[in-house]
Design a binder for these strands. Structure first.
Length: 612
RNA sequence: GGGCCCGUAGCUCAGCGGACAGAGUGUCAGGUUCCGGACCUGGAUGUCGCGGGUUCAAAUCCCGUCGGGCUCGCCA
C-alpha cells in the first residue's frame, strides 16, 4: 500500500538514535537485475498469452531446480493443457517458439524443457549484476515511500532478559532490517508495559524492602539488582501472613489507582522503577545488538486520555456488554470476550494497547508486531477490536514465534528460573575465544592477530552464532535450549558465512595492485557464473523475506552464497590468475560477493568480520 | 475438552502446489609445494507422523487421527 493512508506528522522527523551498525547500506541501495529480469519474463509471457486470448493472472513463475541455470521458469503449460486440449510439453514448445527473446531485456533465450519453460539470462544480466555488486548497498530495494513501525521485544521491565524471550529481539531486529532493505521506512519500537499490576507490585516491593534483606545480585547491573526486590515481593505475597499480604495488596491497589487517575506522584514512583530496570535491560539488548528508535510507554495512552476515549467508543459498540461487574466486548468469531474495563473503572492491558495501536496507525502506514505465541489470542482480539473501532487492520501484521524452553520447563523472571541472555552471550564469547586461540597456531594466513583482534573475533563469532542459530529457523518451531546446540560453531552456523566474508577481505587485501574491472566476458567458468547468478538473486530474496516477514530465508540464502563462493574460491584463483583481465574481473566478483554476504549478514544482525 | 502452531535422513533444520525431497551434523574414504583448511571432494542414509480426499501434479491444500507445544484469567 504505497503512499500515505491517514496523512499526519510521522515520527520520522525526529532525529534517530545513533545506530552505528549500518555504516553504508540501506541508503544508497542498488536493486540489481533479478527483479528487472522477472519483469521482462512476466511481460514476455503475458504478451504471448494475451495474443492467444488466454488469462494472464497466473504465470506459474518459479525458480528452477539447482541443476538448471535458468533464472526463472514457468509451469504455465500445465494449466493450459486442458483448455487448449494439448499436452503440456507441446504447449511449452509452442509458447517458447512464439516469444522472441530478443524483444525483452535481459532475456537471452527461452527453452522448453518438457512441460516447463526456462528463461535464461543474457550477458547484460551478468554485467548488470557485477556492476550492481560493486556498490556497498547492493541488494537494498528502491524506497516504497511507506512507513512501518516494527514493535518487538516489549518485555515487561521486571528483570534480566532471559533466553526464553531472546527470540523476540533477534527475530524482531532482523524483520526490521529486512524491511529496511526492502525499501520501507522503518522505526523500531519497544512498548513498555509500565502500567500493569506487575509494575505496581514491583514499585511496592522496591519501596517496602531494604537491600540488606536481599541476596547478592547475579550481575552488577541495574536490572539484576532490581529484580531481587521483585522476586522478594512476589515471594512475600505468596507466603506472608494474611494480614501483611492484605496490607501489601492495598498498597499495590493504590498504586494502580494512582496510575489510572493520572496521579503525578504515583507515576513518578513507578517510573523510577521502570526506567531503572529498563535501563539495564537495554544494555543487555544492546549487546546483540538490538536497538530501538523509541520506547513507548503504555502510561502515555492513559495520561493523554486516549485510553478513556477508546473505552467510550468500545462501550458504544454493538458487541459491548456489561457482565459480571465488567465491561466486555463480544466478538463474532472469537469465543472469548475481551474485558476492557473493570468494575473499579481501571483499564486493562489490551484496552491500552488499543489506544497504542490507533496511535501507530496515525503515525505509520503499517505496523508489524513480533510476539510470542502465548500472546496470539490477545493479538486476535486486539485486531478484531481495532476493526470494530474503525481501523483498517490490513495495515497490522504479526510475527509469531514460539518460546525457547529449557529441558526442565519454562523460564520465569518472577521465579528466577532460566538462563539469562547475558550468560548465554558470555558463554558464547568464551567458547569462541577458545576456538580462535586453538586455531591461532595453525593459521595459514600470516597476519598476526593481536589480543584486541582475538577479542573482537570472539565477540563477532560468539554473538553471531547465537543470533544466527535463532534467526535461521522458522519462528513457529519450538526450541528446547541446550548449551552445546546453541553454541555449535560447526554446523550451518554464522562462522561458516563469516569466514567467507573474511576470505573475500583477505583476497582484496592481497590484491593491492589489481584494479577491479566489470568484465564478465572473461568470467566464463561454471563456478563464476553460478556465483554471479546467486549474487543476482539477492534482491529477490530480500523482497520475498520482507513480504512474508521471514528473515530466516536470508539465513538460508547466506549458506547458498557461501557454498557458491567456496566453489569459486576452489576453482578460480584471483591474485594468481593467468592474465590481468581475469584477475581484475575476478576481483570485481569477489567484491560483489563480499557486499552481498555483508549485507545478508547485516540483515540478520550478524557482524561480518574482516579477519577471523 | 475447544481453538491455534509444530511433526521431513540417527540429530538440527531448509523446501510449503510443480522438474529426481535438499543441506549441515554424525559416520566412512580422500584433499593444502597454489589468494585464509572455521575450507573442499566423494560414498551411505528417508513409508516427508499415520489414514483418507482434492488436483494433470501433494512434503506442500482439505478432512480425520496420533504425538508434542501454546492458549482458553476483571495477568501482561
Amino acid at each position: 500500500m504505497p503512499g500515505d493512508s491517514s496523512g499526519c506528522g510521522r515520527p520520522r522527523d525526529r532525529p534517530k538514535p545513533n545506530r552505528t551498525r549500518y555504516p553504508y547500506t540501506r541508503r544508497s541501495g542498488n536493486e540489481g537485475m533479478f527483479r528487472p529480469f522477472r519483469e521482462s519474463v512476466e511481460s514476455a509471457l503475458a504478451s504471448v498469452l494475451r495474443a492467444r486470448e488466454l488469462p494472464i493472472d497466473d504465470l506459474g513463475l518459479e525458480e528452477p531446480p539447482e541443476d538448471i541455470d535458468a533464472v526463472l521458469a514457468s509451469s504455465i503449460a500445465f494449466r493450459l493443457a486442458s483448455e487448449l486440449g494439448a499436452a503440456p510439453p507441446q504447449i511449452a514448445g509452442e509458447l517458447a517458439a512464439e516469444i522472441d527473446a530478443g524483444e525483452y531485456r535481459y532475456i537471452d533465450r527461452i527453452e522448453p524443457a518438457g512441460p516447463y519453460l526456462n528463461f535464461f539470462p543474457d550477458e547484460s544480466y551478468f554485467e548488470g549484476t557485477l556492476k550492481a555488486g560493486q556498490e556497498p548497498g547492493y541488494g537494498a530495494l528502491p524506497s516504497r515511500d511507506t512507513s512501518v513501525v516494527v514493535e518487538h521485544t516489549s518485555a515487561n521491565p521486571t528483570g534480566p532478559v532471559h533466553v526464553g524471550r531472546a527470540r523476540n529481539p533477534i527475530i524482531g531486529d532482523a524483520v526490521a532490517n529486512v524491511l529496511e532493505y526492502a525499501g520501507y521506512d522503518v522505526d523500531r519500537h519497544y512498548y513498555v508495559n509500565d502500567a500493569g499490576r506487575q509494575m505496581a507490585v514491583f514499585t511496592w516491593a522496591y519501596e517496602r524492602f531494604d537491600e540488606s534483606e536481599l541476596p547478592e545480585p547475579a550481575r552488577d547491573r541495574a536490572e539484576y539488582r532490581m529484580v531481587r526486590y521483585y522476586r522478594k515481593g512476589n515471594e512475600f505475597l505468596e507466603n506472608a501472613e494474611p494480614d501483611a499480604v492484605e496490607a501489601a495488596e492495598a498498597e499495590i491497589e493504590s498504586i494502580l489507582q494512582g496510575l489510572e487517575s493520572g496521579d503525578e506522584e504515583t507515576y513518578d514512583r513507578v517510573t523510577e522503577v521502570v526506567d531503572t530496570v529498563l535501563g539495564g535491560m537495554r544494555e543487555c539488548l544492546a549487546r546483540l545488538p538490538a536497538e530501538f528508535d523509541e520506547f513507548v510507554k503504555e502510561t502515555r495512552f492513559m495520561r493523554d486520555g486516549s485510553t478513556d476515549d477508546v473505552v467510550d467508543r468500545l462501550k458504544a459498540l454493538e458487541g459491548a456488554v456489561y457482565e459480571e461487574d465488567a465491561w466486555q466486548l463480544e466478538f463474532e468469531n472469537i469465543e472469548k470476550n475481551l474485558v476492557f474495563l473493570r468494575a473499579d473503572g481501571t483499564s486493562l492491558y489490551t484496552t491500552r494497547d488499543l489506544a497504542h495501536h490507533e496511535w501507530k496507525f496515525e503515525n505509520y502506514d503499517r505496523a508489524v508486531t513480533v510476539l510470542g505465541e502465548d500472546h496470539k489470542l490477545q493479538a486476535e482480539q486486539l485486531r478484531s477490536a481495532l476493526e470494530l473501532l474503525g481501523s483498517d487492520t490490513e495495515r497490522l501484521e504479526s510475527v509469531i514465534y514460539s518460546y525457547v524452553n529449557l529441558p526442565e520447563g519454562k523460564m520465569s523472571t518472577r521465579r528466577g528460573t532460566g538462563v539469562q541472555l547475558d550468560d548465554l552471550l558470555d558463554e558464547a564469547i568464551d567458547r569462541a575465544r577458545e576456538e580462535v586461540e586453538t586455531r591461532l597456531d595453525d593459521r595459514l594466513r600470516n597476519d598476526e592477530l593481536d589480543d584486541d583482534d582475538v577479542e573482537r573475533i570472539a565477540r563477532q563469532v560468539g554473538i553471531g552464532a547465537v543470533r544466527y542459530d535463532i534467526v535461521s529457523k522458522q519462528p513457529t518451531k519450538a526450541i528446547t535450549f541446550e548449551w552445546d546446540r546453541a553454541l555449535d560453531f560447526e554446523a550451518q552456523s554464522a562462522p561458516y558465512v563469516q569466514y567467507v566474508h573474511a576470505r573475500c577481505c583477505g583476497i582484496e587485501n592481497e590484491a593491492a595492485g589489481i584494479d577491479p574491472e566489470l568484465n564478465v566476458s572473461v568470467l566464463t567458468s561454471e563456478a563464476e557464473r553460478e556465483l554471479l547468478l546467486t549474487i543476482a538473486r539477492f534482491p529477490g530474496v530480500i523482497e520475498a523475506a520482507a513480504d512474508d516477514h521471514e528473515p530466516h530465508r536470508i539465513a538460508t540464502y547466506t549458506r547458498e552464497i557461501a557454498d557458491r563462493f567456496n566453489g569459486f574460491y576452489r576453482e578460480c584463483p584471483v591474485i594468481t590468475a593467468d592474465d590481468d583481465a581475469t584477475k581484475s574481473a575476478r576481483l570485481a566478483l569477489v567484491i560483489a560477493a563480499r557486499h552481498t554476504v555483508a549485507n545478508a549478514l547485516d540483515i540478520l544482525g550478524v557482524e561480518a568480520p574482516e579477519s577471523m
